[in-house]
Amino acid sequence: MKHYEVEILDAKTREKLCFLDKVEPHATIAEIKNLFTKTHPQWYPARQSLRLDPKGKSLKDEDVLQKLPVGTTATLYFRDLGAQISWVTVFLTEYAGPLFIYLLFYFRVPFIYGHKYDFTSSRHTVVHLACICHSFHYIKRLLETLFVHRFSHGTMPLRNIFKNCTYYWGFAAWMAYYINHPLYTPPTYGAQQVKLALAIFVICQLGNFSIHMALRDLRPAGSKTRKIPYPTKNPFTWLFLLVSCPNYTYEVGSWIGFAIMTQCLPVALFSLVGFTQMTIWAKGKHRSYLKEFRDYPPLRMPIIPFLL
């Protein structure tokens, strides 16, 4: 059985960083990364991007050496992705923050609204209902991160945790300040508006959870398998008939419901920014589905049925 020789060059300087002799033909890129780490321990596998061309796409960890368009002496180019952190850690951090930050404003801890309001309670029912909904949303997200989601990528750049936390924590503080303010004004149409908004919120939260469970069942634990998601017997998953990412559709719907319930401008802005970002993600995933699966359902749109 022939063996391969693998040289790894710096993608920027073309400097030879490592030479691997007698590499098995069936070795994966993940195994080559581990061998590279032995000579350069500062670059652990998650930091490494190996590619066939200095400006090309990163090879997948599961790619097999003998199936790549290389000879028995293969040249790979290395790029440092920077310090990495696990997706689970990032999600837990960015979701735990809003949960606790919101509660600080809800309980009106000292130095927020003035001494005479310390630890007082709002007289408006919608304020307490909003706290329950907000807390439920982020507790749900935390539990899904721990027990439901299966991540195709193990890590992301460390800098992302600061960007994500600034976004989630900042908006949580902004909306919580106004919703729990002693001078907060309840919704214009009173109980009817709150009940309608609560119904929207609850339905969308159930829908979002149902989609996450359906997506989880598509991917076996520990794998990166991708399949076309289809509706199940659960009615909340029937939205798969019309959109590629109904989890985002339901998520946006939840925040629209919360915005109607609280009639709070920061919540509306958070919903708008979230919708914009999720639309970008949904379009990317939709394109990926179309590219990977020739039999992908043609009627589906990325996030909004028939429109977007």
Rank of each mutant, 00 (worst) to 15 (best):
D118G: 12
I280M: 13
N160T: 00
M301V: 09
I228G: 14
L265F: 07
K224R: 10
Y77C: 08
W281M: 13
P98L: 02
G190W: 15
Q84G: 06
R123W: 06
W43L: 10
S58C: 14
R216H: 13
A172P: 09
G71I: 00
E15V: 07
Y138H: 05
P157T: 03
I85R: 00
H286V: 05
L290P: 06
T249H: 15
K291P: 04
I304S: 09
K163E: 09
F100N: 10
P98Y: 00
I280T: 11
I161T: 09
Q48S: 14
P187H: 00
A199V: 12
K38P: 04
L52Q: 06
K227W: 15
Y184Q: 15
Q84K: 05
I179S: 09
I29D: 04
G207S: 04
H153R: 05
Y178P: 14
P186L: 09
G170E: 10
L242Y: 13
Y289D: 13
A83M: 14
P298R: 11
V267A: 10
C131F: 08
P25H: 03
V194A: 10
P302H: 06
C18T: 14
W238S: 08
L17I: 09
T249S: 09
G71S: 11
V127N: 06
L183I: 03
R300K: 13
H212I: 12
G71C: 10
Y289L: 04
P54V: 00
F275L: 09
A30C: 05
V109L: 08
L265T: 00
E62A: 09
L241R: 11
I112L: 03
Q192T: 14
C165P: 05
M156V: 07
M156I: 05
G253M: 15
H153W: 02
F111N: 10
T93D: 02
K55Y: 02
S121P: 11
H212N: 01
F147V: 13
P98K: 02
I304C: 13
G154V: 05
I303A: 04
R123I: 14
T155D: 15
A46D: 00
E5T: 11
V23E: 07
F36V: 05
V202T: 03
I304T: 07
P297H: 06
G257E: 15
D21V: 09
S122I: 10
I303D: 01
E292D: 08
Y230G: 10
T185K: 14
G56C: 08
I179P: 04
V109E: 09
Q48P: 12
I101T: 09
H115E: 03
I303W: 02
V88R: 01
Q48V: 03
I101K: 01
G207F: 15
K60W: 15
Q205Y: 15
T39N: 11
A46N: 13
N34T: 00
L92F: 01
P54H: 00
Y230N: 12
P231V: 01
S58N: 02
P302E: 01
P246N: 15
I161S: 13
N160R: 01
P235A: 04
V267R: 04
F100W: 04
G114C: 08
A74S: 07
F201W: 13
P54Y: 15
T125N: 14
G154L: 05
Q84I: 01
T13R: 15
K33N: 05
L65T: 00
T93E: 02
V267I: 03
F147P: 15
V127E: 07
H149E: 01
K227S: 00
F78P: 13
L20R: 10
I179T: 09
S223L: 15
A176L: 03
